[in-house]
Nucleic acid binder design. Structure first.
Lengths: 146, 146
DNA sequence: TGGGTTTCGGACTGTGATGTCTTAAATATC
DNA sequence: GATATTTAAGACATCACAGTCCGAAACCCA
């Protein structure tokens, strides 16, 4: 069975959560992120770059440079991150790949899956980065990678 | 956003549903399937081969040969098909990729996602091919690809 | 001004999934 | 038995995603 998010997207979420644990406005380098999160250096760089391009993150070059959240953690939802990397096609396409599946012409699992899909979407929209980060803060970060 | 099933798996589901609409025991050739379902000929061949290998389908070579369901449609669940192609890893791994996410050490969306994952699993287990095919029979097949 | 540090951007490689092609094996019909 | 038809099986090609590498641009500090 295939999974919900691409690996890029998983990394993006982990990175954004890590940044949310930092004091507001403090810059964090890729070097620190890659060490703490165990994500390939250059790959993570590209992902953060992409997030910065959408305004979700800010970036600064040079020493003391790095990345930080582009707005307050509570104003960033899980959906914002996922949508920036993987898009939101899953909200539209039929789960079984029937090309003409729609509300007027539903397939056999259309309604059942539609309900689950809505629940997933709601979860992504409701979860904001601030409260997620707070949950993780309870224990030391690496062991809290859970 | 990435999707729930691989393309192979989507094709497998579509193929099995098509076979379920046929009289019991009647063989259907790849040629017919590929034409009606608009799936690449040889690729579909490999997928059906694989399903036959697990016993989900039976196959016969030669003229009048083809594929048919390996047991009664009502005894084949959606999970059987999905599991044969994509496996069932999704029931185990953390949706955000945190390597050490577990019940004892849950991430922020662990419980929420876990509940949804269970619902998806239940859907796959409960939906059998017979009733799904019956739903689709209501309209002409191609336009019922929905 | 110059050197070191960091992100930026593009090109490149590796890998797995998707899709194609060809030959062999099995079966039905004549 | 010969031939046509169909699946079986493996090699091959193509493509998207994952991951690497390098030079350039921006920035800080001495």
């Amino acid at each position: 069975m295939s999974i919900l998010f691409s690996r890029q997207c998983e990394y993006a979420i982990q990175g954004v959560l890590y940044l949310a644990l930092k004091p507001e406005g403090e810059m964090t380098s890729i070097k620190e992120l890659t060490k703490r999160l165990d994500i390939p250096y250059h790959f993570l760089g590209k992902i953060l770059q992409r997030l910065a391009g959408t305004g979700l993150l800010t970036s600064l070059k040079g020493p003391t440079g790095g990345f930080a959240l582009g707005r307050k953690a509570k104003d960033i939802t899980l959906f914002d991150v996922v949508n920036a990397i993987d898009g939101s096609d899953f909200t539209r396409n039929c789960v079984m790949g029937f090309p003409e599946c729609s509300g007027k012409n539903p397939c056999s699992v259309h309604d059942t899956w539609g309900r689950m899909r809505d629940e997933i979407y709601d979860m992504l929209i409701r979860k904001n980065i601030a409260e997620m980060a707070k949950d993780m803060k309870k224990t030391e970060y690496r062991s809290a990678r859970s």
